[in-house]
C-alpha cells in the first residue's frame, strides 16, 4: 500500500463514520415532539444532538482532508449515492420499540468502534473518538434500559420489542463488513477492523437480549451496500427533509 492510497482513503473512511452519526441524528430528531413521554422526548433528542455533534466534527475533518469543503457542503450538498452510512441508521423509526432496537444495536457497535478508534494512528480521529465514546456509552445504556423493560414487560411491549429486533437484526451484518478501503486503513493503523468488533458486540448484546426475553431471528438475509452509496427506499425522503432548507436558500445562516 502506498502512502498516496492511504491519504486518499482517510477522508472516505471519515465520511463513513460521519454519515452514520449524521443520519442517525436526523432519524432520532424525527421523534422531537412525538415521543411517548415528554421526558423521553428530551432523552431521544439529546442523543440526536450528541450524534450531530460527532457528525459535525467528523464532517469538518473530512472536508478539511478533501480540500476546503465545509461540514455544510458535505451534509447538505451531496446526493443520495454519495452518502456512505450503513443502512441500519437510515431505517425508519417505526414505533418506540423499533427505535430502541436500532439504538441498542448501533450504540453497542459505536461503543466498541470508538473505544478502539481512540488508539488510531490518526490523531484527529483518535481525539474525536475519545470524546464521543463517553456519550455513546450513555446512548447504549439508555437503549439497554428500555430493551429490558419493553422486552420483559407486558405481552404487548414484548411483542413490539421482538418485532423491532426481528426487523432490524438483518441490517446489523453490514456493520461488520470489511472491504479494500478498510483493509488498507487497518493495516496503516488508522481504521478499526469491523470484523474484530463483532465478538465484543455479540458478547454485550447476548446477555441483554436474554434478560429481556428476546430472541435473535434466524435469517441469512443480510442487506448491504450503504458503504457503496446504495440505500433503502426511505433514505431519499430523509435526505429531502434534511437538505431542502439549505438547498432552497443557499448560504442561509442564523
Amino acid at each position: 500500500m502506498t502512502q498516496l492510497a492511504t491519504t486518499a482513503s482517510v477522508p472516505a473512511y471519515v465520511l463513513r463514520l460521519a454519515d452514520d452519526a449524521l443520519i442517525l441524528a436526523q432519524r432520532l430528531g424525527e421523534w422531537s415532539a412525538h415521543a411517548p413521554e415528554l421526558e423521553e422526548d428530551v432523552a431521544l433528542t439529546n442523543i440526536a444532538l450528541d450524534l450531530l455533534g460527532h457528525a459535525r466534527m467528523l464532517l469538518s475533518y473530512a472536508g478539511e482532508l478533501l480540500g476546503g469543503r465545509t461540514e455544510d457542503d458535505l451534509a447538505f450538498l451531496r446526493d443520495e449515492r454519495e452518502f456512505v452510512n450503513c443502512q441500519l441508521v437510515e431505517r425508519p423509526n417505526g414505533d418506540f420499540a423499533a427505535t430502541v432496537a436500532r439504538q441498542l444495536f448501533f450504540a453497542a457497535y459505536q461503543c466498541e468502534l470508538y473505544a478502539a478508534l481512540g488508539e488510531s494512528a490518526d490523531a484527529t480521529l483518535a481525539a474525536i473518538a475519545d470524546r464521543a465514546v463517553k456519550e455513546v456509552s450513555y446512548h447504549r445504556d439508555h437503549a439497554v434500559q428500555w430493551t429490558l423493560r419493553l422486552g420483559d414487560g407486558t405481552p404487548e411491549s414484548h411483542r413490539r420489542m421482538q418485532a423491532g429486533v426481528d426487523g432490524l437484526w438483518p441490517y446489523t451484518s453490514e456493520l461488520f463488513e470489511s472491504d479494500d478501503l478498510l483493509l488498507a486503513l487497518v493495516a496503516a493503523g488508522v481504521a478499526v477492523d469491523p470484523v474484530a468488533l463483532r465478538p465484543a458486540w455479540s458478547g454485550f448484546l447476548g446477555p441483554v437480549l436474554a434478560e429481556a426475553t428476546l430472541t435473535v431471528p434466524e435469517t441469512t438475509w443480510a442487506p448491504s451496500g450503504g458503504r457503496r452509496g446504495l440505500h433503502t427506499e426511505d433514505f431519499g425522503l430523509l435526505l429531502a427533509e434534511m437538505q431542502h432548507l439549505h438547498r432552497s436558500h443557499p448560504g442561509a445562516s442564523w
Binding site: W31, D95, F96, L150, G153, E156, S157, R160, L238
Partner: peptide, 10 residues
C-alpha cells in the same frame, strides 16, 4: 417518518 410513536406504553 415517525410511524406510530405512541405505540408502546410501558
Amino acid at each position: 417518518g415517525a410511524g406510530s410513536p405512541n405505540g408502546s406504553v410501558p
